[in-house]
């Protein structure tokens, strides 16, 4: 099967110190939607910047649609579309002018470009404000403009770096239905980073979890969930005594102490174990503040492999980023 992207031992060390991408190797099949999951600073954007030619890797290489990253950069740039995490549109130009400029940079014939720009502007509901300067757009409108800039050249390979951050639900849905439709029609490959795990879960054919620049695990969402071997029960306890006692509970396959006196235990089947656990708690007079039972989800997968929640402190950061991006 032909791969659209083959990454080999890619490493990026910023200014000699920060290793943002650490010896990453990855194969992504043609026509696939591929998710990259990782906390802030994991190295997702850096990886995308290298693959789109904005940054040079420190070592390693990659092939995109058969073109070598270090040799055929121009060819690669012609067939890729990018929606970067940062805003890249020009506030002094109108929405339409921004798209026209992009179309010119990709050498798209004028008439074709005009038709496509109209379709794209309508898709993200910016057609009515197309002649307004982008600096006068709201944060979400600006982000929508950014999105369609990456689609002007109907790319073969599309990189989406947190494309839906700060967008309202309707726009998110419009975007995904548009992307699914062009993906089917043109068999484009999509690499997607997002903090919305539900998006990855429902959209991505395969995904990788990336942490500190390294790929921790890859597979389909189903495979990753299966790899957890059971359900997760979390208990919030009050003191160390309770923590010690719960540590001796035999029916869990794994018990971990998390932050804030939280216990995370893995059980083969929560339906059967729960009554046993309840009895154990009352026998040992442990009274948790809360009990939470979860079937495997991508959130759980993420915690399992990185030891942290993908959206820890995320809400604040999203907001801060969103404000900055404006």
């Amino acid at each position: 099967m032909d791969n659209s992207i083959e990454i080999e031992n890619l490493t990026k060390i910023y200014s000699g110190r920060v290793t943002a991408v650490d010896n990453v190797s990855l194969k992504i099949g043609r026509g696939m939607i591929y998710g990259l999951l990782g906390q802030n600073g994991a190295g997702k954007s850096t990886l995308i910047k290298i693959l789109t030619g904005v940054l040079k890797s420190t070592s390693g290489t990659a092939r995109i649609a058969g073109n070598d990253l270090n040799k055929d950069s121009l060819k690669i740039r012609r067939i890729t579309g990018v929606v970067p995490q940062d805003l890249t549109t020009d506030g002094d130009l109108s929405g339409r002018e921004n798209l026209k400029l992009v179309a010119e940079l990709y050498d798209i014939p004028k008439k074709e470009a005009e038709e496509r720009i109209e379709v794209l502007l309508k898709m993200v509901d910016l057609y009515d404000v197309r002649n307004r300067h982008a600096s006068a757009y709201s944060g979400g409108m600006r982000k929508r403009l950014e999105l369609v800039c990456g689609l002007v050249n109907t790319p073969e390979v599309l990189f989406l770096d947190e494309p839906t951050l700060g967008l309202d639900v309707t726009t998110r849905e419009n975007l995904w239905s548009y992307i699914r439709s062009i993906q089917k029609e043109f068999k484009i490959t999509i690499i997607l980073t997002t903090h919305y795990l539900d998006e990855v879960d429902s959209l991505a054919d395969e995904l990788s979890i990336i942490d500190h620049g390294k790929i921790i695990i890859s597979g389909t969402s189903e495979e990753l969930k299966k790899s957890l071997n059971g359900d997760i029960i979390t208990l919030k306890l009050k003191n160390d005594d309770e923590i010690n006692k719960i540590g001796e509970f035999k029916n869990a396959t794994e018990i971990k102490l998390m932050e804030n006196k939280e216990i995370r235990m893995k059980v083969s089947n929560s339906d059967e174990i729960l009554p046993v656990l309840m009895k154990y708690l009352s026998d040992n007079s442990i009274s948790p503040e809360s009990i939470n039972i979860r079937k495997p989800s991508l959130d759980e997968v993420f915690i399992e492999y990185t030891g942290r929640n993908i959206n820890a402190e995320q809400e604040n950061k999203d907001y801060a980023k969103f404000m900055r991006a404006r």
């Binding site: 904005v54 121009l74 740039r77 990018v82 970067p84 890249t88 506030g91 940079l105 990709y106």
Partner: peptide
């Protein structure tokens, strides 16, 4: 600084 340069660097020019 505005990020616009990224758009030009990604373009096939």
């Amino acid at each position: 600084r505005l990020g616009i340069l990224q758009r030009f660097l990604m373009a096939p020019i």
